[in-house]
Amino acid sequence: MTLGARFALGRLFERLTALAAALIVLALGVVLVDVLRDGVGVVSWRFFVDEPGAGPTEGGIFPAIFGTVALTLVMTIIVMPLGVGAALYLHEYASPTSRLAGLARAAVHHLAGVPSIVYGLFGLGFFVHALGGALDAATGQALKWAQPGLLWAACTLAVLTLPTVIVATEEALRAVPSEVRLASLALGATRAQTLGRVVLPAAAPGILTAAVLAVSRGAGEVAPVLLTGVASWLPDLPGSLSSQFMHLGFHAYVLATQSPDVDAARPALAGTVAALLVLTFLLNLVAIVLRARLRRGMEAS
């Protein structure tokens, strides 16, 4: 092959790779435009704050929004201490050659690869049946905790988002220069004092990123909550941690597949999907911006 032909062929293939990148971005654009175009017409202030009407296709989606927010809030309260603690162990306490730390790392790696529906099964088998059953037996109640509800769904999502939080927090800890730790220790601070007053404050933006990532992941997951506490139609807001709840993602699924009249459900579906997309999208955008700042700061130092 002549040199010219080789260059021409190379340029052709280069363009093909550019085309692939363009196609992926285009696909993203098509999904966004399609979802938002249908949704914008429906979405109004009333749609968000209204109680549902006589059926799932009428009225607003307030209970679904409330349920999603309550769920992710409880989830965050559970996962953040655990995830940040685990990252602190892996990055600050365990020696690089520690076998326990190696095992913990491998376990987190595998947890990240477990399909979300399996998390649902785990939540049902462990939290609802085993833990809930034990709680009921201990408190002498019948079927209060041993059935799907807000707390168990939040616990399940907390396990699901644990790897996300650990990985993101570790990245934040890596960005804290080791000199400041050494300086603090040299001044006579204990390890715990160094953590609390030097390392954690410096890593705070990164830990915030971890929380945002976890929330956006948790808010969008439907398969795990499907088995652990979501209700398809429940105008009453969840009153306690053991109540069932409505959920934006599940509501979208119900509207799309379970309604007797698909065309009647279309507007409500479009609005619900748009609301869910905007919610998770904004959270992701925040996380990506925070993370980009963090990385830039790290490269600069």
Binding site: L28, G249, L269, L285, I288
Partner: peptide
Amino acid sequence: IELLAGIPSVVLGSFALM
């Protein structure tokens, strides 16, 4: 492209369905 990863699967599902 990373934003695409953040789209919940139920949104992709209803895009596919509808």
